[in-house]
């Protein structure tokens, strides 16, 4: 029980990534009047794993992103990720996208970045909203 509570608490601290279709994610973003944050990753990408391990779980990051974005992590080689990779012209990983509820790109960044940079990028995206 203690372990379960610990895991739940740890997950709540970081970014809460929705597990849903992209269409549903966009619909939710529209409903909540938020931008969508997309973590574009592949399984063979080491820096992508580093983001998941060290940046996304940070409390400050989780708090800001959970308040302002609908977040989703998509394997760009599986399912609808393949089409999305083509649509957003993803050519390196990780790529982090901020899109509006129509799926239009607001801003993007490539590569492993620090939590502070991710927060700055998120604020820039909100300014462009």
């Amino acid at each position: 029980m203690a372990l379960f509570l610990h895991v739940s608490f740890a997950q709540e601290k970081g970014i809460n990534f929705k597990k849903d279709s992209f269409e549903s994610i966009l619909a939710l973003a529209k409903k909540e009047n938020k931008l969508v944050f997309i973590d574009c990753f592949t399984v063979w990408c080491g820096p992508c794993k580093e983001l998941v391990k060290t940046v996304f779980p940070q409390e400050e990051v989780g708090s800001f992103f959970n308040d302002n974005f609908i977040s989703v992590a998509i394997d760009m080689e599986k399912g609808e990720g393949v089409e999305l990779a083509q649509y957003y012209q993803i050519d390196s990983y990780p790529t982090l996208l901020f899109v509006n509820s129509n799926g239009d790109l607001v801003t993007r960044s490539s590569g492993l970045i620090a939590a502070s940079t991710l927060l700055e990028n998120a604020k820039i995206a909100l300014d462009k909203k």
Binding site: T42, W44, C45, G46, P47, C48, D91, S92, Y93, P94, S110, G111, L112, I113
Partner: peptide
């Protein structure tokens, strides 16, 4: 091959 640096990777 599949290339990476410490910050990013390119597809194979």
């Amino acid at each position: 091959y599949q290339a990476c640096d410490p910050f990013q990777c390119f597809p194979p």
